[in-house]
Design a protein around this nucleic acid. Structure first.
Lengths: 119, 119
DNA sequence: CTTGAATCTGACATGAGTGTCAGGTTCTAG
DNA sequence: CTAGAACCTGACACTCATGTCAGATTCAAG
């Protein structure tokens, strides 16, 4: 598929898709004229990238991580190096803390919403 | 307490504390010479602010939200307006989605870490 | 062909919290 | 009184994914 359709289906701007490619997170075939041509699997990959961004990982980490992920088609995957594993373990801990923070913030909002409802 | 101690105890830079004040999220008495003097409760408030930032709320929302929160000392709180409640409900939904994303990302990391461990 | 939609590259702007530096003032221990 | 630590204001820089614009090229349908 082309970039417009991928953007529509993933809800990610064309600008960002090109950026992902430049960062090495996403690749695409090219038509003879130079237009990008994405495989179906790109949809899942872009969604994963967005999730990882939301989790606070930077492009660089994502670039390292992506080839170690099980592909959607269950294809073979690269083994993470010990250094990367250490990095990812730290990121995991950070994500855990982030989730805990979010839950507390959600509780805070609930409290305020509930207090207003009882009026 | 003074800004240095508050910064140390909350792990938030002095720069950020002054920024919070300018945005109207945090207030302080002043010594005759102009130095900020914070009450003990400021510690909890700053931590709350950080959590809400982490949850993706902007300063403006936090400013509206803070007076509606139950104070640490159980003091009286302002009732949220219907408009604010609508806002906060939307934010709550966003936080829910964010948590779901984070859990998925954490699972992704776990998968990669586990795959590397089995080597 | 032609024409309009889609895509291309490259460059500059934005946001929002935070870092940092400069130059000056206040506080406090000795 | 004094030295040095702590604090003040204001301004500018940064991050980094994303928005946006310009000007050119390609694609696909008529």
């Amino acid at each position: 598929m082309r970039i417009g359709e991928l953007a529509r289906r993933t809800n990610v701007s064309e600008r960002s898709l090109r950026y992902y490619e430049k960062q090495g997170m996403l690749s695409a075939e090219r038509t003879p004229g130079g237009h990008r041509e994405y495989p179906e699997a790109a949809v899942d990959r872009v969604i994963r990238i967005q999730e990882l961004f939301a989790a606070g990982l930077c492009s660089e980490k994502i670039v390292q991580l992506l080839p170690c992920m099980r592909d959607t088609d269950g294809g073979p995957s690269v083994r993470a190096t010990p250094d990367l594993v250490a990095d990812l373990t730290a990121e995991r801990a950070r994500i855990d803390r982030m989730i805990a923070d979010l839950v507390r913030s959600r509780d805070t909002l609930d409290e305020v919403i509930e207090a207003a409802r009882l009026s």
